[in-house]
Design a protein around this nucleic acid. Structure first.
Length: 781
DNA sequence: AGCACGCCGACT
DNA sequence: GTCGGCGTGCTC
């Protein structure tokens, strides 16, 4: 007898271990590692989904299978998780402090997760579904179950679905030709002659213009055969794109390409200025590995997963490409996943989670814009795509390339220490394109009387460009910034009732929203504090800036791109297409316009507020600002027209701003490293954050100190433990948050100490205590 | 999570 | 006397 080890789909500490189940005879030969199953769990034997992570030969009588329950159902005919993915889940757990099932589920498309339901059956045979009952009905049914009047049957159903299309074919042409149809049956005759003239082997049913009645007649007489063919929900996109072939590389690109394909000993850091043609290097190296019969994963930040980028991959590799991004529906994601799983796609282009896709025979992984924080998932499991990439590269002996114009300090420091091999691209690929000229506008001395957001010089420059029929990109930095409502009389700001944060104004819905807990309320007419009517809107959301722009420059055509205008599907795409067709002069947007866009007619980039992210309580604030500014600056002058960049700031002498003006990554790197070293921050130290939350502030504080004590006892004296301190936003969702930051270099006992901290939540009196552990946290605000 | 077991208050 | 409140503990 064999025993299966199953991880059940219950994300809890108590169930975070494999459970043993007997494998009944019928499943013996079918069951494999990485398959999904339904197993009876708990006293009620309700069905729960689980994943097979081990199959063992039964050893001793003690643990005999008579004590074990049987696996109820096999959900797959072949494993949905590969052996490599099971291994990845194990490895991940050393750093993500999350449940095993959460790690495993991160690797599966949503559609493969079960729906749970119960069937209630009464003695007279009436059946009802639990999920369809009202609250009262649920209560009365529960009582009836207790009284034995109703029996319960557990249902667990995989949501998996495929889209199919019906195709019609003719099994026997002669039979059809000889089959007599009465003359008055006009439609039937029509279909008969249509089918006889048909040249294709089969035809999609929906493309025929005959009623189902007519078709049915033909089916009943065995004149035609219907088969269901599975279709891909994402197919249409691929057909519309024209092919494209490799471009000639310049000497720098060529040398980078040669080095990348030659060795996979250590990861490469490809540092190339904007416009230096990193993407072309990616495309050609991927092509090289495809030629060798291998596969590739290309990661890009979600925000820059624009059609512009994905189309380049489709144009080069056609239907060998699978695209994975959050804009896809669950069904579409599932289709792409199966395209990868079946080996039909050999190149995966996608955001963070695409690092888990089950490609076999991996040759190369490329992470573009590797400094992007979106590669770290900020909910459980809190993995960093770069770490997963390193693991997968190791498993496959694959090459890993990290690319960026402004590498993260961590990566650049590793390259300096020889852990990564540094490859530099210093020239623009299009030699006619020269680097844009960057000017800083000191807003302290240039406040315009005409506008709250624009300096005279920026306005004049915009006008000049529009007059020349060139285009402009304007960026409003939203990081650490939002529009809010304040009373001019008493200074009262409307706060969220659940969180320690002011509500953000949304003009489109005319509401005040909390960005943390989702609380929504109307905009007050009078001040809730002093009843004054002098309630004013502060800050400049993109909407506000757009209005202002329209007032000052009514002739300019403005397109706005922010969360509000890109909410609907493909909205992103449509806006960019419009701008690309020069249907607008100005593209006004938030951070999302900083990345990846390539519009040759854009000759001016304006940054409206460079400094909002600069003074955040986050040691990476400068790095982020520098990266963002450098990136958005790169949008100007992509072709042979010279680009200009104007940056408005109240901190013109901040080094992040000055180094942007000089376009000097090296210098910025040096200065930032000095600061990191002085304060013992990454990349000199590793960091782990422990977040403690409780609805009672006193308890939150007390438990934080307890945790800090545990850490101190278990770690060496070299580890630096900061805090506990209240989070910058100390209360959200009616919970108080305290944080502890551990900075360390080598700590043998760290993992076990942190697990010990997590164990605290299992104690009876800590029921309402929430502890989150985040290794290498990316956001402190 | 969901279900049972178990130990204390207001009801036929 | 019991029905039922939800605190506690376990699930192969």
């Amino acid at each position: 007898m064999k025993i299966a080890k199953v991880i059940v789909d219950l994300p809890l500490m108590q169930t975070d271990k494999p459970f043993s189940y007997a494998i009944s005879k019928e499943f013996q030969s079918l069951i494999e590692l990485g398959m999904r199953v339904h197993v009876p769990f708990g006293t009620g034997n309700r069905l729960v989904q689980g994943i097979i992570v081990g199959i063992e030969e039964e050893k001793d009588a003690e643990n005999s299978s008579v004590n074990l329950k049987d696996i109820a159902e096999l959900l797959d005919v072949e494993p949905v998780l590969t052996e490599e993915q099971l291994w990845l889940a194990d490895e991940m757990r050393h750093s993500v402090f999350s449940y095993k099932i959460s790690c495993l589920k991160a690797m599966l498309p949503n559609l493969l997760n079960s729906n749970y339901d119960k069937l209630l059956k009464s003695a007279d045979g009436a059946v009802s579904k639990w999920s369809q009952l009202t609250e009262e009905e649920k209560i009365s049914s529960a009582k009836a179950v207790r009284a034995g009047q109703l029996s319960v049957e557990y249902l667990a159903k995989s949501k998996e679905n495929r889209r199919t299309e019906k195709y019609l074919s003719i099994p026997d042409l002669e039979k059809l030709a000889e089959f007599e149809i009465e003359k008055r049956a006009k439609k039937r005759l029509e279909l008969k002659y249509f089918l006889l003239r048909m040249t294709e082997e089969k035809i999609a049913l929906k493309s025929l213009n005959f009623s189902s009645q007519i078709i049915k007649f033909f089916i009943e007489h065995d004149l035609v055969k219907i088969e269901e063919v599975e279709i891909s929900r994402t197919k249409d996109k691929f057909e519309a794109i024209e092919n494209d072939s490799a471009k000639v590389l310049n000497s720098e690109q060529e040398s980078a390409y040669e080095k990348i394909i030659a060795s996979s000993d250590k990861p490469f850091l490809l540092e190339g200025i904007t416009g230096s043609g990193k993407t072309e290097v990616y495309l050609q190296t991927i092509d090289h590995f495809l030629q060798m019969g291998k596969t590739a994963i290309m990661l890009v930040p979600e925000i820059s997963l624009t059609p512009q980028i994905t189309n380049r991959f489709i144009a080069r590799f056609g239907d060998k490409v699978a695209i994975m991004h959050s804009g896809l529906s669950d069904g579409e994601k599932y289709d792409e996943w199966r395209k990868i799983k079946s080996g039909k796609a050999q190149v995966v282009v996608g955001a963070r989670s695409a690092i888990f896709t089950p490609v076999e025979n991996l040759g190369i992984i490329i992470i573009d814009e590797e400094h992007e924080t979106s590669y770290k998932q900020d909910s459980s499991p809190r993995y960093h795509a770069r770490d997963i990439a390193l693991l997968r590269a190791k498993w496959h002996g694959a090459t890993l390339v990290l690319g960026s114009a402004t590498p993260s300090l961590e990566s650049r420091a590793r390259a300096m220490r020889g852990v990564y091999e540094l490859l530099l691209l210093t020239k623009r690929a299009n030699e006619a394109a020269i680097l844009p000229e960057i000017k800083i506008i000191d807003m302290r001395s240039e406040i315009s009387d005409q506008s709250a957001n624009f300096s005279q010089s920026l306005l004049a420059k915009i006008k000049e460009k529009i007059d020349k029929d060139e285009q402009v990109i304007l960026m409003l930095n939203r990081r650490g910034y939002s529009s809010f409502v304040m009373c001019r009389e008493c200074g009262f700001v409307v706060d969220c009732p659940n969180c320690d944060i002011s509500l953000t104004l949304h003009m489109d819905t005319r509401t005040l929203n909390c960005h943390y807990c989702g609380h929504v309320q109307g905009i007050p007419q009078t001040c809730p504090n002093c009843q004054s009517r002098k309630i004013r809107y502060y800050g400049s959301g993109t909407q506000k800036v757009e209005e202002e722009l329209r007032e000052i420059m009514p002739e300019a055509r403005v397109l706005r791109m922010d969360v509000d205008t890109t909410r609907t599907k493909n909205a992103h795409e449509k806006i960019l297409e419009k701008f690309g067709n020069h249907e607008a002069d100005i593209l006004l947007g938030t951070q999302m316009i900083a990345k990846g866009l390539d519009f040759p007619n854009v000759t001016l980039v304006g940054v409206i507020n460079a400094d909002t992210g600069l003074n955040l309580p986050d040691f990476r604030a400068s790095e982020r600002s520098f990266e963002l500014l450098m990136q958005v600056a790169g949008r100007a002058g992509r072709a042979d027209k010279k680009g200009e960049v104007l940056i408005q700031t109240f901190n013109p002498h901040h080094y992040a701003i000055e180094m942007t003006k000089a376009q000097d990554y090296e210098k910025f790197y040096e200065m930032e490293m000095r600061f990191r070293r002085e304060l013992s921050y990454p990349p000199y130290y590793f960091t782990v954050q422990v977040l403690v939350s409780h609805q009672d502030e006193e308890v939150a504080i007390q438990k934080s100190y307890e945790i800090s004590q545990i850490l101190k006892q278990n770690l060496t004296e070299k580890a630096k433990i900061l805090g506990p301190t209240a989070r910058p936003i100390a209360r959200t969702h009616n919970l108080y948050h305290y944080q502890i930051l551990v900075k360390y270099r080598f700590e043998e006992e760290l993992e076990s100490a942190l697990n010990q901290v997590l164990e605290l939540t299992q104690l009876r009196d800590n029921k309402n205590l929430r502890i989150l552990i985040d290794s290498e946290p990316q956001n402190f605000v």
